Simulated scan of single mutants.
Amino acid sequence: MRCDRVHSFDVAKQGYVNLLHARIPAGTADTAPMVAARVDLLSSGVYLPLADALAKVASEHIEDGMVIDAGAGTGYYLAHVLDAVPAAYGLALDVSAVALRRAARAHPRAGAAVWNLWEPWPVADSSASLILNVFAPRNAPQFHRVLTEDGLLVVATPNPGHLRELGDLVISVDGSKDARLEDTLGERFTRVDRHEVTQQVALEPDRIRQVVEMGPSAHHLHRDGRRERLDAITGSVDVTTSFSVTLYRPVS
């Protein structure tokens, strides 16, 4: 790939392109073990209700155009959305090249680019029909810039009760997260709808380890005996998964 200033970027053999021009601080991008844990956990169907909810929203609100998954990880949720909207195509953006090796192959109508979401995106103005943002950084100015006037922003966040049975093995959800979400998006977006996706599921020890090791909690397992307590789990645990799916329209 080549830009207007004649910078060139090779497409990796796995199908993604790395557009980053600077190194990312340690602990920012998903590591190979985190991605492996996420792939195993998502393939088990534990978070399928959330994927189905996102796909349903997309099918009800768009018919075609580009879907950007901002913080796409392995492309799991983007693939479900594209399956639900056959005339759409997708772009996975994430800072982790390891994750995008998976995202680039997640769906035949999706491309993938390594990018820091806090930087101005390598995406044209008013080019996206829908932006997905699932447990990822929220860059409101870029969301607003790349969405069409009638585009839709769909934000998925964990609720305060999410994974509560696992205690401090996972990072707890801040009770003021919803207010902070509105503060972040309020000037540029209007909230138009919201859905909750909550279930209780029995997780075997291997699945519990995947839940913990696939997210930011993985960076903290060396503290306060967390790794030892995680490894000591030998039986099934009933765990709550709880998410909010919030829909926004851009303000003109």
Score class of each variant (00 low, 15 high):
L19H: 10
Y89E: 14
S236A: 14
H144F: 09
D52R: 08
Q210C: 08
V67E: 04
R207K: 12
M34Y: 01
V98D: 05
V134A: 08
G27M: 10
E182K: 06
W115Y: 12
H61T: 13
N133H: 02
S172R: 15
K177S: 14
G71P: 07
Y76P: 00
S43L: 02
A92M: 09
E213S: 13
V95F: 14
D94L: 02
E228V: 15
H7W: 11
H107K: 11
A110N: 06
A97I: 04
A140P: 01
V239T: 05
T198W: 01
Y76S: 03
A110D: 05
D10I: 02
A110T: 12
S44L: 06
V192N: 06
V245H: 08
R227Y: 06
A113I: 05
L41T: 01
E228Q: 15
A51Q: 01
D168H: 10
A51H: 01
L163D: 00
Y77T: 02
G27I: 06
Q199T: 15
V154M: 12
V81D: 00
G27W: 10
P205N: 07
A36C: 02
L152T: 13
D224E: 12
E149R: 12
G65N: 04
M1I: 05
R180I: 03
V237L: 07
T157C: 03
P205G: 03
A202D: 13
E60Y: 03
P137W: 03
S217Q: 12
A136Y: 13
D30K: 04
L153P: 03
V11R: 09
R102G: 03
P86M: 04
R191H: 07
A106L: 05
A97Y: 06
V98C: 00
L100V: 05
C3E: 14
V123Q: 02
K56Q: 13
V154E: 10
A156R: 02
R249P: 11
D183Y: 01
E165R: 00
L152F: 06
G65S: 01
A29E: 14
A70W: 05
S172E: 09
V123H: 08
R188V: 03
E187F: 14
Q210H: 11
A37F: 01
A99S: 02
S8K: 14
V134H: 13
V6R: 12
G111E: 15
W121S: 10
S8F: 13
S244I: 02
V123K: 02
G71H: 07
V123L: 09
P141K: 03
E119K: 11
H220M: 11
E204Q: 11
R209K: 15
D193H: 05
E228W: 10
D52W: 00
I68M: 06
L19W: 09
R191S: 06
V192Y: 02
R223H: 09
E63L: 04
T157Q: 08
R2A: 07
A79R: 07
S244L: 06
F9I: 08
E228S: 13
M34G: 07
T184W: 01
R102Q: 15
A88W: 02
W115A: 01
A84R: 01
L50A: 08
G75V: 07
M214R: 12
D231N: 15
P49N: 08
L42S: 02
A128Y: 08
V81H: 01
H222S: 15
Y16H: 10
